[in-house]
């Protein structure tokens, strides 16, 4: 359960990151308010994930935090790549 929440928080962080780079990832520009929310989400979500991860144990928590970062990043990248792939 804990791991699922950590993954969810990373997903949120990557989603905010992608929306903050509209040109690179081909998304519509955010409003100034939306931009502020995305910046906050990009900082707060990983911080919350780290706090949640290290609660049961420091070293295991940090390893889990980095591991979930990598896997969720990979999933987001694959989703974005398939989204922009032209139909065959």
């Amino acid at each position: 359960m804990n791991f699922a929440i950590i993954c969810g928080l990373w997903l949120m962080a990557f989603a905010c990151h992608v929306r903050l780079q509209p040109a690179r990832y081909r998304f519509a520009r955010l409003t100034p308010h939306g931009r502020r929310v995305a910046v906050m989400g990009r900082i707060a979500a990983p911080a919350c994930a780290l706090m949640l991860a290290i609660r049961p144990g420091g070293i295991t928590g940090v390893l889990t935090w980095f591991g979930s970062l990598s896997i969720m990043g990979l999933l987001v990248a694959l989703w974005l790549a398939l989204r922009h792939r032209p139909a065959a």
Binding site: F14, H17, V18, Q21, R24, Y25, G73, V76, A77, L78, L80, A81, L82, H84, R85, P86
Partner: peptide
């Protein structure tokens, strides 16, 4: 950091 989730298969 900006390209952290960049993958262009096309």
């Amino acid at each position: 950091v900006p390209d952290i989730v960049m993958l262009r298969l096309s």
